[in-house]
């Protein structure tokens, strides 16, 4: 069966969403797959909406760098409002890997728009039958010694659930793109995300019980 895996990474500028898509792409190439990525970003260096598309052709070449709403097999939501903004990209029964992190847009801070809660996001995703993983990625990234590696925690969580990329390819990709100490802590963050997901099989219940509580500390 020819299969292209479509991944949408929704993030806020500065969170490392583009780095995540680069790492996934590099790891996929190292694993011998065909890859395309595309990105949609605004003009801001920080705090804009960033959407990156990753397409992995396991045994078929990929041409288009982008895909349409309803065609993502996996939605990686690095931020709650951005995950919500893009939840319509997920196909029915797709996988959503969500970070608990929230960076409210200025429209919300100014009281001109309603905030998006995790509850609202979960309801939206459940309406198209999504499998949902919620993980406190910033906390695990800090545990790994790299507060900026929340993106790699989510990659670990995604790979624990779907096993798309071999670990050695991920390690090689992270080292090729990040280099130095940052690469090693990023790899640690990747494994923390992977183990956590494997061990806890986090669900929305788990998020409501524990992950959110730990966010307060």
């Amino acid at each position: 069966m020819t299969k292209v895996v479509n991944i949408l990474v929704a993030s806020v500028g500065g969170q490392g969403g583009l780095t995540l898509s680069r790492v996934i792409a590099a790891a996929a190439v190292m694993a011998g797959y065909s890859v395309r990525t595309g990105e949609t970003l605004g003009m801001a260096q920080r705090f804009g909406s960033v959407k990156s598309y990753v397409r992995i052709g396991v045994d078929t070449p990929v041409y288009s760098p982008v895909f349409e709403p309803g065609e993502a097999d996996i939605l990686v939501g690095m931020e709650v409002a951005e995950a919500y903004r893009n939840h319509h990209y997920l196909r029915p029964m797709g996988l959503a890997v969500l970070s608990t992190e929230e960076k409210p847009p200025i429209s919300v801070s100014l009281g001109k728009a309603e905030p998006v809660t995790m509850k609202k996001l979960i309801e939206a995703l459940e309406s198209h039958g999504a499998e949902i993983i919620i993980i406190n990625a910033p906390r695990l990234a800090r545990e790994a010694g790299n507060p900026r590696a929340a993106n790699m925690v989510l990659l670990g969580a995604m790979n624990a659930a779907k096993r798309i990329l071999p670990d050695n390819a991920v390690e090689e990709a992270i080292r090729a793109i990040l280099r130095g100490k940052r690469a090693e802590t990023s790899i640690k963050a990747y494994y923390l995300g992977k183990e956590y997901t494997g061990k806890h099989k986090p669900s929305k219940e788990h998020w409501e019980d524990k992950a959110h509580a730990s966010e307060q500390t």
Binding site: G42, P104, S107, A113
Partner: peptide
């Protein structure tokens, strides 16, 4: 989805 606007700041 009707998400809160996030114009580039």
């Amino acid at each position: 989805p009707r998400a809160p606007p996030r114009p580039p700041p």
